[in-house]
Design a protein around this nucleic acid. Sequence first.
DNA 1: AATTAATTACGAAAAACTTCGTAGCACAAA
DNA 2: TTTGTGCTACGAAGTTTTTCGTAATTAATT
Lengths: 128, 128
Amino acid sequence: MNEQIPKPTEAELEILQVLWQHGPSTVRFINDKLSEQREVGYTTTLKLMQIMLEKGILVRNTDSKIHVYRAAVGESDTQQQLLDKFVEATFRGAAMKMVMQALGNHKTSPAELDEIKALIDKIEKEQK
Amino acid sequence: MNEQIPKPTEAELEILQVLWQHGPSTVRFINDKLSEQREVGYTTTLKLMQIMLEKGILVRNTDSKIHVYRAAVGESDTQQQLLDKFVEATFRGAAMKMVMQALGNHKTSPAELDEIKALIDKIEKEQK
DNA sequence: AATTAATTACGAAAAACTTCGTAGCACAAA
DNA sequence: TTTGTGCTACGAAGTTTTTCGTAATTAATT
């Protein structure tokens, strides 16, 4: 079956976010993006990405001297995996409590609320 | 203002969960509870709780020789704090995307769905 | 060709987090 | 009293994660 890829660390997740958002990228590009938010050395980013490569979280193309990395894990899959663990650790598995808290505290646009309503309707129909 | 208490680590969060669930407890009690889920040494738990005390995450009563610890941080407050960071790190701040993913993947009871609907209605009314 | 600039590789230090062993103390049991 | 049990304190080791410095290589520039 599928090789078990480890849960990314926080720093690794930042790199994945850039890759998911912008597609395959060089270390330079990723480091530039990360640097917009916080100070981070080039070799620090490089080393992290090499580690992620070893773990199977990233793959890379080495045709050129300038390697191009891309995520080997899907965004939604990873988010789901992290979400499950988060709900378990933080809300003792009570996903609905978390949803309520997220809804209650966030300024949600009418369009988004409608989306959620539609989703709920869909789920309710399936349960009948 | 409020002293800034650091975000609990994973191991610390496990201890907080026991305290939130059962109220003020001894190290022995907490360690027993944690041991139900995974092997963990007594002094390991003790040390962690002493560190949490230093950080201000816990407080304790030392009237008796057997110290009684309790959480110095509220469950909902902490959950909210962790939720905000999680949404930011994992969903780039897209709380609604997370909610949809949580709803979509969880077997949600009709009662729970109704609760969410009610909450949405309430939010929509407030926005008018 | 020589110099400069940008890149990868990689060991190792630094920092953060977790686990453990031992000492010391208090109280109960023998 | 002596022994045993259970607790706290705490340094330190172990592990994981993050950061950094240096060397080597390649490509571009002069």
